[in-house]
Computed example of a mutant assay.
Amino acid sequence: MHSADGTKPPSPAADGRRFREVLGNFPTSVVAITAGGPGERPEGMIVGSFTSVSLDPPLVAFLADRSSSTFPRIRAAGRYCVNALAADQEAVCRAMATKGADRFAGLDWRPSPLGNPVLDGVVAWVDCVIEDVLVLGDHHLVVGRVHDLRVESAKTPLLFFRGGYGDYFSPTAMVLDRLVGW
């Protein structure tokens, strides 16, 4: 719909609850962003906003909440590894998302070529050097230049959808009780 002068009127602002409710219908992959490694305290955080950006040069990106206490340490490292969690790694996801805890307690990992933690059991990993960080609203857009990457297993990835975790082969794991009546 256009106004008389041919311009589009601004869309009504969505409140936070409605925004989350609608966008929760877009499944997102769950990845652990890790940094540090041998001789350094490993750092890690969970994000649901990882994407490829460019093939030439190879760039990827993720979004980090500006209120994150972990992201400044990852940014200071200047490098990170994206670990695509497998569908059977919900417990790893929850451990890596716990504030104030040792997020690596009980987790097995090995250093990536850049020295970042690669978590055991992941689907794939992408090792990056931070290329750029932009502030967009309440998040940082973190662009990384890909240094190395590898597929680790044929497992299905962990997804977040409509407030629950699961994979695309077992929809019953995705909190179907919220769909009753839809």
Rank of each mutant, 00 (worst) to 15 (best):
V133K: 07
K155L: 12
L176D: 11
H140V: 01
R178Y: 10
F169E: 13
G144Q: 04
R150K: 12
L158P: 03
A154P: 00
H139T: 08
T172R: 13
L176I: 08
L158C: 04
L158N: 05
G166C: 09
L141D: 00
V143Y: 06
V151K: 15
A154R: 12
F169R: 13
L179E: 12
V135K: 09
K155R: 14
D177W: 14
H147V: 12
E152V: 13
R145Q: 13
F161D: 02
F160I: 09
K155C: 03
D167S: 13
T172V: 08
D132Q: 14
E131H: 15
V135I: 10
G144S: 04
S170W: 02
R150H: 12
P171S: 06
V175W: 03
R145T: 10
G163R: 01
F161E: 01
D132H: 14
D148W: 08
M174K: 07
S170I: 00
Y165S: 01
P171D: 03
K155V: 02
V142T: 03
F160G: 01
G144F: 04
G166S: 09
K155M: 01
G164C: 03
R145G: 06
Y168W: 13
D148P: 01
K155T: 05
L134M: 08
L141V: 15
V133R: 06
L134W: 05
V135M: 02
L136E: 10
S153E: 08
L149H: 12
T156I: 02
Y165F: 15
E152C: 14
V175I: 01
L179S: 14
V135S: 13
V175Q: 09
G164R: 11
R150E: 15
V133P: 06
V175H: 10
V142C: 00
E131Q: 12
F160N: 03
G166L: 09
L134T: 03
L141W: 00
D138W: 01
Y165R: 07
V146C: 03
V151Q: 13
T172D: 14
G163F: 07
V133W: 02
T172C: 01
D138E: 12
V135Y: 00
